[in-house]
């Protein structure tokens, strides 16, 4: 790809950008990878309750080494803490929170998102040598809204925002909003609508890196509420 003047967001900046859009009071599940980092950028003064599917509601950050508790982990199996007001539940109750529509938001990583909101994030072929899905399908189908945060293209430059997913689906029509290193886009009945772009990037340059046709969002649209 030729030298360009725009500045793609770092992984940290992508996480920071997602965190900006999470209001106080929401119950939120964060997937593994960049989504996990989102919690680091929600200021402590804004009360957001993080849920981990292994039965933790009110999850806090990683402990100081001397406070590490082997019985308290997150879905990525990293040691975490419980905030004041937090609670433990068993797996069926934890997934009742997910599947029963009680979570305001789930943020997942993905391989591909299609313009109709289909998402593929668990397997890279139908004959994956050792597939694993975890809670992704429950989260994608059950949360009140699903946002995806991912690189705009693959390492080889292939688009990840596509007309139709090529990889096996996690859920159909589930994604409301996508945060990439190049742009924030809403999934609308008319396809992807660009909410904002990385500094210096033009619409044409963004479209060139996107398989699905893009349009500019209406300026007054609320975060991810257009679908």
């Amino acid at each position: 790809m030729s030298e360009t003047a725009f500045a793609p967001l770092s992984r940290k900046d992508m996480a920071r950008r997602v965190a900006q859009d999470i209001p106080e009071g929401w119950y939120v599940n964060l997937g593994i990878g960049i989504p996990t980092m989102v919690a680091d950028y929600v200021p402590a003064s804004r009360e957001v309750v993080f849920h981990s599917e292994n039965g933790v509601l009110g999850m806090g950050p990683a402990p100081a080494p001397e406070d590490a508790d082997p019985y308290l982990i997150n879905a990525g199996k990293q040691q975490v803490t419980l905030l004041r007001g937090g609670a433990y539940v068993h797996h069926a109750d934890s997934f009742a929170m997910i599947r029963g529509g009680h979570l305001d938001l789930c943020v997942l990583g993905a391989f591909e998102v299609a313009e109709n909101g289909d998402v593929a994030n668990w397997a890279t072929s139908a004959n994956d040598t050792a597939p694993a899905v975890g809670g992704a399908m429950d989260l994608a189908a059950g949360a009140k809204r699903l946002w995806v945060v991912m690189e705009h293209t693959t390492k080889d430059g292939a688009p990840r925002l596509v007309k139709k997913c090529g990889y096996p689906l996690t859920a159909m029509g589930a994604v409301r909003r996508v945060y990439t290193n190049l742009a924030v886009l809403d999934v609308t009945p008319q396809g992807f609508a660009v909410v904002e772009m990385a500094p210096g990037l033009t619409f044409e340059e963004l479209q060139a890196r996107t398989d699905a046709p893009l349009q500019m969002a209406q300026p007054d649209s609320e975060p991810g509420e257009t679908a």
Partner: peptide
């Protein structure tokens, strides 16, 4: 047999 985690619990 791969089962979504919540479906497995339920």
């Amino acid at each position: 047999e791969i089962v979504p985690q919540g479906t497995l619990a339920e």
